[in-house]
Design a protein around this nucleic acid. Structure first.
Length: 277
DNA sequence: CATGCGTCCTGCTTGC
DNA sequence: TGCAAGCAGGACGCAT
């Protein structure tokens, strides 16, 4: 389930093979992968001949920035959301696409970007202006490019559970279930605490914890629960450092108390009933 | 407006 | 052993 650290790892891994290349064509092996249309053939015409200018991450999105094709002046961006089971890698264009491959982006060097997604939740879209996409425009700040106090101030007087707000992409961008649970543990906060019940100091502590967890996870190449792989096909390493995620019933790494499992914001949430008050 | 919950999708896991 | 129900979860639509 690629969240911020996983998508960051993917962006860094893909950039050397994509930046400077020219898009030759695309092939869709699934009709639903292309969100909000334009339809497949329109998409193919719209990307043909475009040099790839940059590859970066925003929230959980992989953004491939495209320059105009020769003789044109219209830049564009390809935004890919991997959702839960999406994978991206570069391989020879002639390679047989494995099962669940949803689309291929063919490059001018005989290589292709492959997008595979077992569960079909993922999608990509071609946008002339990213900010014209309401979801993109509504994204909150990047947690690693914003100070913890500013992030804490964004909680305002909200009464929602703190975990729901961590997962809310308009509050802070890129956090999913794994890093929400890990951050809450590190900050000693129960996931079902209402944001308005947290002191300013505890809010700051939470976002400082989030920054620490995300930084460590990026350094480890992300977390592999089941499906996530780096573009090189490698598993991440941060799953070995989980304190609570996926460890319900196991002893708390800090105090030994059995970790509790509950549902907050519709998501499974694991926490230590003793350390997280 | 703010909050919360059901839905999508498919393969693996759990339980009878 | 076999089969079905349950589960995973990001974003979104809709209800309250």
């Amino acid at each position: 389930m690629p969240e911020l650290p996983e998508v960051e790892t993917i962006a860094r891994g893909l950039a050397p093979g994509l930046v400077g290349r020219i898009v030759a064509d695309a092939r869709f092996l699934c009709t639903t992968v292309l969100a909000d249309c334009p339809c497949g053939d329109t998409f193919r015409t719209a990307i043909h001949g475009r040099p790839i200018r940059n590859v970066r991450r925003r929230a959980k999105l992989l953004i491939i920035e495209l320059s105009p094709a020769p003789g044109r002046t219209d830049p564009a961006s390809l935004a890919v959301h991997l959702k839960m089971t999406g994978r991206l890698w570069i391989a020879g264009a002639a390679e047989e696409p494995p099962r669940h491959t949803r689309f291929q982006l063919f490059l001018d060097d005989g290589q292709a970007l492959f997008f595979q997604d077992q569960r079909r939740f993922g999608n990509c879209r071609l946008l002339s202006d990213l900010d014209s996409w309401p979801f993109y425009a509504s994204l909150g700040p990047e947690p690693l490019e914003t100070d913890a106090k500013s992030l804490a101030d964004r909680l305002g007087k909200k009464t929602a559970r703190i975990k729901a707000l961590l997962l809310d992409q308009t509050v802070v961008a890129g956090v999913g279930n794994i890093y929400a649970d890990e951050s809450l543990f590190l900050a000693g906060i129960r996931p079902d605490t209402r944001a308005c019940d947290l002191s300013p100091a505890r809010r700051r502590k939470l976002f400082a914890a989030l920054q620490q967890v995300l930084t460590r996870a990026i350094a480890a190449g992300g977390s592999t629960i089941r499906d996530y792989r780096t573009p090189e096909g490698l598993e991440g390493g941060f799953q070995n450092d989980f304190a609570v995620y996926g460890r319900g019933g196991e002893p708390c790494p800090a105090c030994g108390t059995a970790l509790s499992v509950t549902r907050v914001a519709g998501r499974t949430s694991t926490f230590c009933p003793r350390c997280q008050g």
